[in-house]
Amino acid sequence: MKRSQYVVIGLGRFGSSLAKELINLGYEVLGIDKDEEAVDEMSDTLTHVVTADSTDEDVLRSLGIRNFDCAIVAIGDDIQASILTAILLKDIGVKTVVTKALSELHGKVLQKIGVDRVIFPERDMGIRVAHQLVSPNLLDYIELSNDYTIVELSVPKRLSGRCLKDLDPRAKYGCSVVAINKKHGVIIAPSAADMLEEQDVMVIIGTNDQIESFESEVINL
């Protein structure tokens, strides 16, 4: 089965980090930036790198952009270039276009022009860090929507030796433990009989209110 091919446009801190991780995951990545220095820095890391203006439709077509499965527009601070690039990518026929937004208004414009996914790295990271600061057992926090969230909670010492049935998060709080990350591996869709140990990590999905209640009444007692 053919592996997906990605193009990352904009090789600043966010774009280069994302492109490197895609390479680490085994995918082919074309990197594009108008800054020759940024391109040179990534030349030994990515599958291909090109110095080019992504707002030039002829240039994008000459690079065979429409053949890529996903294009990520990670342009740093030029909102006009970001929007124009996203429009061209959609017009050319790239299957999936993901674009970094610099503000809520920028994000709304991107959604209006039909971008498949808008990401707010700075905003989202700020939210995650804030949640981690106020909750000592919270290891990670991902907002799925305005209502639903996935969190990772470490198991405190006092819950070691208890099984999920004892906590009964679904019946009592409405949230679900979808995985338990243990030292020897990950248990996906754990059963009520699965035992918890100190420093296990529970992956929990639910509404913000459900998870907050479970965390305050069970984890952070």
Rank of each mutant, 00 (worst) to 15 (best):
E215Y: 15
D168P: 01
N24P: 00
T51V: 15
D168L: 00
V118K: 01
L164V: 05
S54M: 03
L133H: 01
H106G: 12
G64K: 04
G107I: 05
K95P: 14
T55K: 02
I9Y: 01
L159E: 11
L84F: 13
K172P: 03
Q111Y: 03
V201H: 10
V151N: 02
K157E: 15
E122A: 12
H131W: 08
A192M: 10
D56I: 10
L89F: 07
I142F: 13
S160R: 07
D33I: 07
N67E: 15
V134S: 13
S154W: 05
D35Y: 08
K90D: 11
A74N: 05
V98H: 05
I204R: 02
H48W: 12
D77C: 02
I9P: 03
M202W: 04
K34I: 12
I204Q: 01
S54T: 06
S145N: 05
I75S: 06
D78F: 05
E37L: 12
D53V: 11
G206V: 06
V59E: 13
N137A: 13
I65W: 07
G93L: 10
I23W: 04
Y148Q: 05
Q80L: 14
L138H: 04
T96M: 10
P156K: 11
N220I: 01
E215C: 06
I23C: 03
T149A: 03
M1R: 09
L30S: 07
T55P: 04
L138R: 02
V151W: 01
Q132T: 08
S103R: 11
V177F: 10
L60W: 01
I205C: 13
K172L: 14
A74F: 03
E57H: 05
G31C: 12
S176Y: 09
S82E: 07
S216P: 01
D91E: 15
A193V: 11
G126R: 09
K182I: 02
I180M: 13
G114H: 11
R61L: 13
Q5F: 05
T45Y: 13
D77E: 15
P121V: 11
